[in-house]
Simulated assay, not measured.
Amino acid sequence: MDWFYAIVYGIVEGITEFLPISSTGHLILTGNLMGVPWTKEVKDAFEVVIQGGAILSVLVYYWRDFLKIRHVNTDPQQRTLWLGVLVACVPAVILGLLFGDAIKATLFRPSVVAWALIVGGILMWLIESRRVTPNVDAIEKIGVRRSLMIGALQCLALLWPGFSRSASSILGGMILGLDRATATKFSFYLGVPTLGGAALLNLIQERELIFGEIGLLNVLIGAGVSFVTAYLAIGWLLKFVSTNNFKPFAIYRVIVGVLILVLLATGVMTNGNLA
């Protein structure tokens, strides 16, 4: 059944990684509801590695844009954009190195994730309800300083598991004056070094565990399914935000958070540490 679990995990990861609804929360629900027999260590490692498929989908979806990086020495806009992307990753890298283990040991629990979903959904609703007129309509106009601030706000997802990296970076961008489409696109770009680096590092560190317990074929299946579904999710989300706000996601987050709390209260799900 490992191949089946790999497919389901890939679908969930690909759909939820770039939507502002927390891939962490959905993967927790998926693993618990399916009764995946893998150990906690194997599940954690597998979930991080298949993020690589989702990240690859961003590179493929925006391949023309990413090729422009070769013009950073001659194009000031490209230089500012990519410098901003790199700078935005710094807060998460520093925070992860200094406090990542402590955060996982104390906060990586279903109840914490549930409340992060609920509170994040409420904040999303409030931000959309009090929306100011955006003044940035292209990622090339974000600037290094604003990029750094978005990167700092992205750390909320690390400090509070389940809040969602996509939600924190998109909402952070909107608060700082980006329109929805620009904030969403920048969140995709920001995910490449942030999540791609984590997936690669995890693959190197846990290669014996991943390939020994799950197998190379199942890893490729999970990553491949994650790539396809994430690619489709990116296109859908960009079309959605062009004509809609994020309030439907806010409602959905609250529903999923409440569902996790109900599963905990009824004993269907345990509140043990997930890291």
Results as ranks from 00 to 15, higher is better:
122 I>L: 12
124 M>R: 11
124 M>W: 12
125 W>A: 04
125 W>N: 01
126 L>E: 06
127 I>D: 00
128 E>K: 10
128 E>Q: 12
128 E>W: 11
130 R>D: 03
131 R>G: 07
132 V>C: 12
133 T>C: 10
133 T>H: 14
134 P>I: 04
134 P>Q: 05
135 N>R: 14
137 D>M: 12
138 A>R: 13
138 A>P: 07
138 A>K: 15
140 E>T: 15
141 K>R: 15
141 K>H: 13
141 K>M: 11
142 I>D: 02
143 G>N: 09
145 R>M: 15
146 R>E: 06
146 R>C: 06
147 S>C: 06
148 L>N: 03
148 L>S: 04
149 M>G: 09
149 M>T: 12
149 M>K: 09
149 M>H: 10
150 I>W: 11
150 I>A: 11
150 I>M: 15
151 G>P: 04
151 G>E: 06
151 G>F: 03
152 A>R: 07
153 L>C: 00
154 Q>P: 09
154 Q>T: 08
155 C>W: 00
156 L>Y: 01
156 L>N: 00
157 A>H: 09
157 A>N: 10
157 A>C: 12
159 L>M: 10
159 L>W: 04
161 P>G: 05
161 P>M: 03
161 P>Y: 02
162 G>C: 03
162 G>H: 02
162 G>P: 05
163 F>I: 05
163 F>T: 08
165 R>C: 13
166 S>N: 06
166 S>E: 04
168 S>M: 07
168 S>W: 05
168 S>H: 05
169 S>W: 05
170 I>M: 04
170 I>C: 01
170 I>F: 00
170 I>S: 01
171 L>P: 02
172 G>H: 00
173 G>R: 10
175 I>F: 09
175 I>K: 08
175 I>V: 12
176 L>R: 06
178 L>R: 07
178 L>V: 07
181 A>C: 09
183 A>S: 14
183 A>Y: 09
184 T>V: 13
184 T>C: 13
184 T>M: 11
185 K>S: 12
185 K>H: 10
185 K>M: 10
185 K>V: 15
186 F>Q: 05
186 F>H: 06
188 F>M: 09
188 F>P: 04
188 F>I: 08
